[in-house]
Structure formats: C-alpha cells, structure tokens
Write a protein that binds this DNA or RNA. Sequence first.
RNA 1: GGUGGUGUAGCUCAGCUGGUUAGAGCGACGGCUUCAUAAGCCGUAGGUCGGCGGUUCAAGUCCGCCCACCACUACCA
Length: 682
Amino acid sequence: MDRRQILVTSALPYVNAGIHLGYMVEALQTDFWLRFQRLRGHEVRYFCGDDTHGTATMLRAQREGREPEALLDEMKAAHIADLNAFDVVHDNFSSTHTPANEALVGEFWSALREQGCVAERDVTQFFDPEAGIFLADRFIIGGCPKCESPDQYGDSCANCGATYEPTELIDPKSAISGAPPEERSHRHLFVELEPFHEFLDEWTQAPGRMPPETANWLKGTFLADALRDWDISRPAPYFGIEIPDAPGNYFYVWLDAPIGYIAATKEWCDETGESLDRWWRNPDCEIHHFIGKDIAYFHTLFWPAMLKTAGFQLPKTVHVHGFLTVNGEKMSKRTGTAVLARTYLDHLSPEFLRYYYASKLSAKVDDIDMNLDEFVAKVNSDLVGKVVNLASRTARFVKGEGLPAYPNAKDDGLFAAGAALSDEIAEAYEARDSNKAMRLIMALADRANEFVEARAPWTLKKDESKQEELREVCAIALNLFRQITVYLAPVLPRFAEESSRLLGLEGETRWEDASSPVEGGEVAKFKHLMERVDPEKVQAMLDASRAGWEASEAEAAAATGSTDEAFDGEPLEAEITIDDFVKVDLRVVEIVEAKSVPKANKLLELTLSLGGGETRTVFAGIKKAYKPEDLVGRMTVMVANLAPRKMKFGLSEGMVLAAGPGDSDIYILSPDSGAKPGQRIR
RNA sequence: GGUGGUGUAGCUCAGCUGGUUAGAGCGACGGCUUCAUAAGCCGUAGGUCGGCGGUUCAAGUCCGCCCACCACUACCA
C-alpha cells in the first residue's frame, strides 16, 4: 500500500459558544477517520481553529466591556482543552483572527480581483442610527406583515411561517438599540460565481467527492439555476478582516473562515519548517473536510471556486454528517439535553461517547439520535460485557507469565477469521461507516467469548495436568482480545494502549497488528480497563447541564445590571393607561385537548376550556417546544377577546400567552395552583 | 407546497446486482455456568419485511399508487 499524504479538517467551531455534544459528533467522526489513517501508516495532519469574526462576536465583546481578542483567547483555550479531553488532538488548532489568515485572505482576494470575479453594487439595508451599524435581517424585529403577530425577526415569522423582506415589517425596530432602523444604501462587493458553474457541476458530481445526498441536493437546487453573486463585504463596524482595497469594508465571515484551514496549516508549517505548498498546492496531498450538513454549500460551491481561483489544491472529499438529537428531540437547554462537552466530562468518560458515536455514525448525512438509555446499554454490554470481560476473565490465569507461541491449530480458526476481516473493517472505517465497523468487531468479541466458555479455563486451572492447555487457551483468548482492541484503536485509543500494557507489549499499535498474534509479552496484573456507565451519572449530567444553562442566563442578566439579553433585544412598548390594559381580556383556561396540526411545522391546535362548557379553539405556534400530550390538563392564560383569525388550518379564536424567541425556545404561562378556568386576569 | 430520504422482530439496525423455511445485537422469557466489573454460554418466544396493485417461474429486494415519519427547502444564503 502506498503511503498517502492526508490533510484533515473539522469545521471551525464558532468562538462564541462552548463545545457541545453536537460538535463532538463532528470532532469524533473526524478523529476516528484520521486515527484509522494513522494506524494504517499514512502521513496525516489535522487542522482546525476557532471561527471568530462577525457581528455577534463584536456585540458580545462590547457587552462584556473588553477587547474581542481577550474573548478569543479565553474561548480558544477552553475549546482546545475540551477537545483534547476527548482525545481529539490537532496538529494546530488556530483561529481565523491571526496574521497568517489575514495574509492568506489578502492573497485570495488579489486572485479574485485579478481574475475579474468581483462585482460591486449598492445594497439597501436597514441601519441602526443609534448603534451606528447595519443590521442583518435577524437583528430587526417588527410585526409580521401577514399575521400581524408582533416581534418577529426580519426574515420570517415564527408564528405563521411567512417569509418576507425586513422592509415589510410593521413598525420595525433594531434588536440592538431598539431604535427604528433607517434604510441606507451602501456599496457591497460580490464574488461572481456563475463563471464557475460548469466547473462546479463537474467537481461536485465527481464520484466520492461528497455523499450522494449532498451532491444531488446541490444539483437540484443551486446548480439547477444560474449561480448568484455572493455578497462578501460588510460595512464597518464589523469584527473581521478589512478589505485591502475597499477601506471601511470588511470581509464577510464566511469568506475568511475556510481560509482559516490553510492559515492553521501555515502556522504549523512555519513552526515545523514544513512547506505549505506540499500540503495545499500538491496534487498528491489529499485534503479531507469534515463538516455538518448545514454548511455544506459553503464548502462545496464557494470554497472550491475560491481555491481554484487562488491556485490551491481542491479537497478530495467533503465528508458531511447530520445533526445530533438527544432522546429523539432537538437538543434543548431547558431539559438539559444541550450538553456541553465540559459538562459531559464532569460526569462520564470520553471513551463512552467515542464508542457510542462510532456505533451510531455512518457515511450517510442522516441525523443521529443519542438515546441515553441506549447509550448506557450499548457501552455496558458491548465494551464492558463483551470486550473488556474477555481479558478480565482470562488474564488473571496467566498473570506474570509470558505469552507462549500462538497455538494456531487450537483456536478453531478464530484468529485467522478475525484477521480475514481486516479489509472489510478497514473499508468501513475508510468510508466513515464506523457503525458497520463496530458491528463487525463486536461479532468477533461474541465468538471469542463463546470460545472461552467452551474451553473453560477456570476448570483447567484446577487440573495439574492441564496447565499447558490453560496457558494456550488464555493465549488464544488474549490474542483475540488484542485483535479486537487493535481494530477498535481508532475509536478507543486509550483503551488500546492500556490493553497493550496489560499484555506487556511495547511500541506503537499498527493496523497490521490485528493480523499477527503476539508472543512473549509478560501479562500484567489485571486492573479495570473501563468502568461501566452508571445511569445515575447520566441523569446527574443532565441535571447539571440544565442548571448550568439556567445559571449562565442568570449571570448574563446580572452582568448587564437590571436588564438581560432578552430585555436588551426588545425594548419596552410605549406607555399605556389602565384603560388600554383592560381592553385585553386575559383568562385562565384549561387545555382540554391538544393536537398537532399535521401540515404545519409550528402549530398545535388547542381546545381551551373557559369553564361552564365554554371552549375556544386556538392555533398556537408552540409545536417545537411542547408535545400535545404534555399540555392536556394544564392551566394557562389566553387572550380571550382577540378577534378570531382565519388560518389555513381553521379559525383561531384567541391566543395563548408565551415568552421566548421562538422555535423550541418558547415558554407558556401557568397560573399558580388554585386558579380556575374562566377567571379573569387583572 | 417542492425536493430528498426512511418505513424489516419491543429497541437499534443488517439484508449486495430479485432465488431455498427473513437475519444480528440489545431487551424479554426459560435453563446452564459461576473464571470475570451481577460479566458469560445455550435455548425459546416475537415479524402479513408500512398498505394496495403490478412485472416475474420467483419480490423485503424492481415498477406504480397510497399512508406515515424525518430532513432540507419555500424564491433564501
């Protein structure tokens, strides 16, 4: 096999957030793949870094009253620590806010300019005159032009699902200062993509370039029409890289982010004396990007076009994975399922998560679900019950002895059968189909345990005349165990190392080790190689996670004095009199029926009892936050005299009150116990 | 509404280019064992392979329609 030269990246985590279990899907899938390649003897380097630029970073630093750089340093250190704790170790974990990146962005930009790929035209956007910045759609809030529900974002309505331009909003306000935004025109720079259309048609559809789902998707959507120009400039103030020949304008974060892959490599090259061109301008070097499906099009349209223009090597493969759900639902701060990597580490071993993800992940772009009961069962039964137990039940019989020459003729062909699987398991890893690899490997563990059962070393031990046979049986079992740990090494590197130590083996593990038995190593005293998962610790993790989010929200509130983020984002309405207020007839109601509206993403149909046999039907946009069955029987609050509104799915006779920005982040109200349906709220 | 995907035992899934009585792991139940972190082994139960129709000597596997669920998308990067 030729020695391949491979450069691997994971998507750059956004600097404003901690590493969570969703990002770990990507980090670990990348890590399994690259450790596999290393085990096979290839030359592999792994680069990543923080994605730092954009309005959000700027606003956060302002709010916290410090320079963005201080924020960046702190978050980067935390990111590296979290990832390393999961045995995800980069050759360089950098940042997009570095001199190296700025220089490379300049290089790309010159190339784009030189080749006439840049267009300019005016863009009219909302501008916040108080904060002095242009506002992206999501920073504008106003009434939905269709259903008139208040406080919707500038691009779409969370209540009725309508989409529109921010200019159509009723009474728009800046989410930053609360000031009414003004429309202002500003000159923007665009990268023209249509000239790359033919190239991208071909490049994206090349076999093995990306998962077929992604290739089809591109073909059917973006590539089906003329490619639009890409708006890559943002007017100051913006935290980012200033455009060299257009002062006062900054590169849009998505232009400089992927260049960060190269910049991270560059820093590493400068440090080690390597040549950047050997990694990024070398057709013999394979570049592999691992990304989530949400950013597929940045990596498969803009990015190859940019690389081509600037004369860099294009990726060989873009590996796309789906999202993580927990217990079948989108991760949620409220239930604690949006677990930070750090919180996980406080309670559970990284090896558990590594194995569990490996057993779930395939080459498909499908989302994967982390079912916590399954997590516990799988780790305990596969790793502890099958694999570890194999060593644990035999090693003690030969403690302190050297392993004898492998008794090939006496193992029922098991070792050879395991070795014969080498290619199939390797293919599964190569195709990042780790779930298949895990299945194949666990089948080996099953067979090995049957063997031990049949030979009953514990019985042999009692018979003086069978000590030789005892040693052979244990040598076989331990070699089968060893074979399994080698196959598992990409996923469980620590475990593989400790297993080597148990068998008195030295030197680095290699893939070929799975095909030849070991002898001579002195078997150490057996000590636990892996704890089993305690379900109570899983629960403790969820509790801590939930508490952590609540605390951080409280802290955010405290940091800004009496206000908090929600308040900041949504200034008070104009003052009203008590007479204005009494016009709104709020009532306590009992939810007597709740059903999902099948054709709607966000709506539940609620039947609300006002007491005395009086009911109202209300459509509420809370589907993503509540399950119908959880609502039935609950008391809540409705606006009872709101004019009925005809909706696509029926007549809505009022509205229930809820707080929160929308989507799954919605909180309906509850009266204290004792309130009765129909009672007025005043 | 559009596009793509999925629907196989209680759960998670495997079933390649159609071919004998449909598989695995986990779980359940019964038994054995007791070396091992209450681990292991043997056995049993459990499936109209989402539904209907078609092609074929033969379909979970191909075609059509329908149903359910999921993802993406809804003029938008």
